[in-house]
């Protein structure tokens, strides 16, 4: 049984000018210990997908249909209380900006102690502090700084502390939404290394949401490429790199500068991403697609073209 199963998930924001389907009919699954990269540009629905998985979509958004199963249990049916317990123990969420998720008037020790004592009944304060110090060591932060406050740490350290709080309860699934976007490249690389190290040590599955296809390719086992609310391609990272099938994925691969190449010619994807309130009929990518045909004005199904490879495009049948 997969750890996470998402089946035809649709999340909608009710705006004044109409309904925005931020996540539209998304299905995917994740095994224990796997890293799934979710890649998309702004407005692709990648963050809303992540927030849907922890039932924390900001209003006026709601999940309108579909199922989310964690270890076979449907989380959309859980009560608020049960959901809260699950969020601590089974799923953790790491946000882009650690400063908004850390409490500025609490020191690091207080953050860890509160978290551990809320979720692990009977743990003494002394043991909680011990666990917190151990975690700081893993994060590469001196345990002597446990009494320091968030503002006393650098941006990279704060993000590592957030990650440490996320994995402290040994969750099965960590969802990280642009965890390194606010960081400089050297610190970014270090932070992504840390996530991988923690995955290897604790065996948790990781959903890495990023706008940067390079990061997803370097760091994930599988990748879901999102466009205008839909998953347009889902495949092993190797296949996304060497055998991208969706014209959008192909376009993305051609538009990213690669520092290892010389005399690269970049090719942008013509046009602009669609207005979510006014989506093209049929395939959402068809106005920008070099292969668009009459067919593409019908709704495109997700077609399986390989063992682990799915594409939402009429070029491959359907």
């Amino acid at each position: 049984m997969p750890l996470l199963e998402v089946d035809s998930l649709t999340t909608v924001y009710h705006a004044r000018r109409g309904e925005v389907k931020a996540v539209d009919d998304v299905s995917l699954s994740l095994s224990k210990g796997e890293i799934l990269g979710v890649v998309g540009e702004s407005g692709s629905g990648k963050s809303t997908l992540g927030l849907s998985l922890i039932r924390q979509i900001p209003p006026p958004g709601t999940v309108v249909s579909g199922r989310i199963l964690i270890s076979g249990k449907s989380i959309l049916k859980l009560s608020e209380r049960e959901m809260l317990a699950l969020k601590g123990r089974k799923i953790a969420f790491i946000f882009q900006d650690p400063m908004t998720s850390l409490n500025p008037v609490k020191n690091v020790e207080a953050h860890f102690v509160e978290l551990l004592r809320t979720h692990e009944h009977g743990i003494s304060e002394h043991d909680a502090i011990g666990r917190a110090k151990e975690m700081l060591r893993i994060l590469g932060i001196s345990p002597e700084r446990i009494r320091d406050y968030p503002h006393q740490f650098s941006g990279g350290m704060r993000q590592r502390i957030m990650i440490g709080l996320g994995v402290a309860l040994n969750p099965d699934l960590v969802i990280a939404d642009e965890p390194t976007t606010a960081l400089d490249v050297i610190v970014q690389a270090k932070t992504l290394d840390l996530l991988k190290k923690l995955r290897d040590a604790y065996g948790m599955a990781l959903i890495l949401i990023t706008h940067d296809l390079s990061i997803a390719l370097e760091r994930s086992d599988r990748i879901a490429v999102m466009y205008a609310g839909q998953v347009v391609e889902l495949a092993n990272s190797n296949d996304i790199q060497n055998n991208p099938n969706h014209p959008y994925t192909q376009g993305l691969m051609r538009s990213i500068p690669n520092i290892e190449l010389t005399d690269q010619r970049l090719q942008a994807i013509p046009g602009t991403p669609p207005d979510l309130l006014n989506l093209p009929v049929g395939c959402r990518f068809n106005p920008r697609c070099p292969y668009a045909m009459v067919h593409c004005h019908k709704a495109t199904p997700l077609v399986q073209i390989g063992e682990n490879h799915w594409v939402r495009c009429f070029l491959y049948g359907g």
Binding site: Q188, E218, N258
Partner: peptide, 23 residues
């Protein structure tokens, strides 16, 4: 810095250089 730049590839050719601390 060059060794830390992400590359659109699943195989990193460059060896990452470890740096102490932050700016």
């Amino acid at each position: 810095l060059l060794s830390a730049v992400p590359v659109p590839s699943t195989e990193r050719k460059r060896k990452p250089v470890e740096l102490k601390g932050e700016v």
